[in-house]
Amino acid sequence: MNGAVVTARGVAKDFPSGDGTIRVLHGIDLTVRAGEMLLLVGPSGCGKTTLISILAGILSASEGAIEVLGQDVRHLTPSAAARFRRETVGFIFQQYNLLPSLTAAENAAIPLVVRGERLDRATRRARAVLEGLGMGAHAEKLPRQLSGGQMQRVAIARALVHDPPFIVCDEPTAALDAASGHEAMRQLRASAVRPGRAVVVVTHDPRVYGFADRIARMEDGRIVEIAEDAAAIRRMTEH
């Protein structure tokens, strides 16, 4: 490992509730190391998606400190936060979020287009990434012409196309069958995990635990356990 991509200390998050607030994260401490895939697991409603949304700069924390590549993301202006997300973070969503009127290559090129690159140059880069994911023959197809596993690979390509150092994935295998989910995780690990980059995956699927370098388990807005080695990950899978 080459240091930390993400460091969170004492992170708390409150949401409005009736006349007051409800605290959904309670003093989270977490380091995400360069070169690793960290899985974030736990029951529904325990705060996993809230936590990755804060780490990725989508939500702001109520308390605590968050640094991504040394950048204090808590104190960014809205425009700086948007620029940070465009340049630093790749997102992979459970439901793919592909635009139905765009081809696979055009969908994968969106982060580059948003960043200001010309469409032809952006789609060339997207086709190259899709090729690396075994999707070269499907680059000009529309989402409705693709299987669930193929759409997930387009979503992976979209997250990788601008070469971000931090990738967050929210339930990337939830809409896939076992074989497609395993293949999506294999592709994600093969293409995304590398020195200088960190990947955080929120999942309920114990079948993919074996892809993790570490697993952090959450309950009631707290991290209660971190499996640091293969043996600990196997024990967590068995339970």
Rank of each mutant, 00 (worst) to 15 (best):
E183K: 12
Q145C: 13
S147F: 08
I92W: 02
Q71D: 04
A12F: 15
H138Y: 15
I92P: 10
R214F: 07
D220N: 15
V201W: 12
R115W: 01
S79E: 02
E140R: 02
G10Q: 08
Q71P: 00
P195N: 02
M236Y: 01
D229N: 03
R118W: 04
G181C: 07
V154R: 00
M1H: 15
A212F: 10
G57K: 04
R186D: 14
G45V: 08
I223N: 06
V89L: 03
G148T: 00
A126P: 07
T237C: 08
T123E: 01
E171F: 14
M1Q: 15
R197C: 05
R197L: 06
D120G: 11
A230I: 10
L69Q: 05
E63P: 06
I92Q: 06
D72M: 12
L76I: 13
G210Y: 08
R207Y: 08
A230H: 13
V200F: 15
A184Y: 10
P78M: 05
A157E: 01
H239E: 07
D205E: 15
L30A: 06
A190N: 11
P195M: 01
G3E: 07
L176A: 11
V5W: 01
K141C: 02
A232Q: 05
P195R: 00
I156C: 03
E36F: 09
R127V: 14
Q145T: 11
V193W: 03
G45A: 13
G210I: 13
P16E: 13
L160K: 02
L142H: 03
A232T: 12
G221I: 09
L130C: 00
H162G: 04
V201H: 09
A212S: 04
D177H: 03
V32R: 12
L69F: 12
P206E: 04
D19V: 13
A175G: 03
A198E: 12
V193M: 11
L38P: 04
L142M: 13
E238P: 04
A122F: 07
P111Q: 08
G10K: 06
M185K: 10
S180V: 10
A4V: 05
L59C: 14
V193E: 11
S53K: 07
L133I: 07
Q71I: 15
H138A: 11
I22N: 12
R83Y: 02
G181D: 01
R234W: 14
M185T: 09
A8K: 00
T7M: 07
D19F: 15
A231T: 00
V168H: 06
V6Q: 05
L59E: 15
A212H: 01
R115P: 05
D213L: 05
V113T: 08
L38F: 04
V5C: 14
E183M: 10
V113N: 07
T123W: 09
A104R: 09
E171D: 12
M1G: 15
A227H: 05
V73H: 04
P16L: 14
T7I: 11
R197W: 02
L40T: 01
A82T: 03
Y209R: 00
R197S: 04
Q71G: 00
N2T: 07
C169V: 10
A178W: 07
Q145V: 13
G42R: 02
A105C: 10
L102W: 11
G90V: 06
E183S: 14
